[in-house]
């Protein structure tokens, strides 16, 4: 089963290779991995999409925690989360196709971020299914280039009524 694991790490050189080395050395799967600094520049946030049965995911979480440069590991599948991915797609557009391309962009609430007489460069964000769908529709026009960021995800805040939250604060 697919899991999204959110990993807070030290923002130092070599940390990415430690994480990647752990996955390759132990035969774990990485479907995508994205990394960027957090608000605190001494830390980076990684979002790793991986898959495996319960025992493998448990090992992945434990092994990540064991890395000295890893500060925090959260298996997002244990909570509710929202995730997004961005793709940038360069499409060949002959004269006849240009209107069709723009219609597709419109349907998916995508943006054209660059255009030339023979191409459009389209940016689209969403869950992986949406990205797959727009790729499928654009493919007949001729996709020249495609880059995807991999997914980033964040846990949802519990949707509690305000009153309950105040109580909790009071209790603390």
């Amino acid at each position: 089963m697919e899991h999204i694991i959110s990993v807070t790490v030290e923002n130092k050189f070599g940390v990415l290779s430690r994480v990647a080395g752990l996955f390759s050395g132990r035969g774990f799967n990485i479907e995508s991995l994205s990394v960027a600094p957090t608000l605190d520049p001494s830390m980076s946030q990684m979002t790793i999409v991986t898959s495996g049965d319960e025992r493998i995911i448990e090992q992945i979480v434990k092994q990540l925690n064991k890395l000295i440069d890893v500060i925090k590991v959260v298996d997002l599948n244990e909570t509710e989360f929202v995730s997004r991915e961005t793709a940038i797609i360069k499409v060949h557009t002959k004269d006849a196709d240009r209107a069709e391309a723009l219609r597709i962009v419109d349907i998916f609430r995508a943006n054209v971020i660059d255009s030339t007489p023979s191409t459009y460069t389209i940016e689209v964000s969403g869950d992986p299914k949406k990205i797959e769908a727009i790729i499928n529709l654009l493919q007949p026009l001729g996709i020249k280039d495609l880059v995807r960021t991999g997914r980033v995800a964040v846990a949802r805040e519990p949707a509690r009524p305000v009153a309950v939250q105040t109580k909790k604060v009071a209790r603390d």
């Binding site: 025992r55 448990e58 090992q59 092994q63 064991k66």
Partner: peptide
């Protein structure tokens, strides 16, 4: 002492 040893 090593959590990864457990249930590996």
């Amino acid at each position: 002492i090593d959590p990864t040893s457990i249930r590996k």
